[in-house]
């Protein structure tokens, strides 16, 4: 379990990739964004965001889904071997989202998971992750409260041993960001003071650990993880060619 200070966009995404590739124990990382930034889903086109202000900071995530304006939010990543989660992707979202519903209830934020028999659209209907909730998303009466996305990979180490790995991203809105005013926010229900944020961290950690049948303990990144994060930040997430690849 890692609780980081808010970081820049490329660094944030690079650390998560390093944890996906190198972490030897299931790792929950909580962080924020400074400066605030817009992250694109892995397959999105940067040209679809030409209307945003010129000084907008962009990054292309490794995970799927739509774009997110990361302002005042609680962001978390979970990097772990796939066997800790249901193999069915939708079922893995259900497990994690139900834990987050319980964590939010502990701090006085009621929300629920969208249950729908409706077939999702063949392609995402909007460029913004939070615009159109689909089955499994966490919502309040005001809209979608949590953005989630995953990357799944089978990684082989130098000894030839393979691991199925999952990187799960979660973005929990604390205060409504300017580019996506249609989102729900924790601030609709409780004021996100420092104490509230700490309570929310604790509740989130406890509930995620419970559903994963793991014991949460504070940790630090290894030197190898730090080194890989710096490299990946420089060569991939901070590289304009990666952002403009689509």
């Amino acid at each position: 379990m890692l609780v980081d200070e808010p970081g820049d966009a490329a660094h944030n995404m690079a650390v998560d990739t390093a944890l996906l590739e190198l972490a030897t124990t299931p790792t929950l990382r909580i962080y924020g964004w400074q400066p605030h930034a817009v992250s694109l889903g892995y397959f999105q086109k940067i040209a679809d965001f030409d209307d945003l202000p010129e000084d907008t900071v962009f990054v292309r995530r490794a995970t799927g889904g739509g774009a997110i304006h990361h302002g005042d939010e609680l962001t978390f990543s979970l990097a772990l071997d796939a066997h800790h989660l249901p193999g069915d992707i939708a079922a893995s979202y259900t497990l994690l989202h139900d834990a987050i519903v319980r964590a939010l209830a502990k701090v006085g934020v009621p929300c629920h998971r969208v249950k729908s028999d409706k077939q999702p659209a063949a392609r995402p209907s909007d460029r913004w992750c939070f615009k159109t909730p689909v089955a499994g998303d966490l919502v309040t009466d005001a809209g979608k409260l949590l953005g989630s996305a995953q990357r799944r990979a089978r990684l082989t180490n130098d000894a030839g041993e393979s691991r199925n790995r999952v990187l799960h991203h979660g973005s929990l809105v604390l205060t409504r960001p300017s580019h996506t005013p249609f989102v729900a926010a924790v601030a609709d229900h409780v004021t996100p003071t420092g104490d509230l944020r700490r309570e929310l961290h604790s509740a989130l950690i406890a509930e995620l650990a419970k559903v994963l049948a793991l014991e949460a303990r504070p940790d630090k990144r290894t030197r190898a993880e730090e080194s890989m994060a710096a490299k990946v930040s420089n060569e991939q997430f901070g590289n304009p060619a990666h952002l403009h690849r689509r």
Binding site: G41, A62, P120, S148, R151
Partner: peptide, 10 residues
């Protein structure tokens, strides 16, 4: 790479 709803898999 293939994307299902919100998950990219290699």
């Amino acid at each position: 790479e293939i994307e299902s709803v919100k998950a990219v898999s290699n």
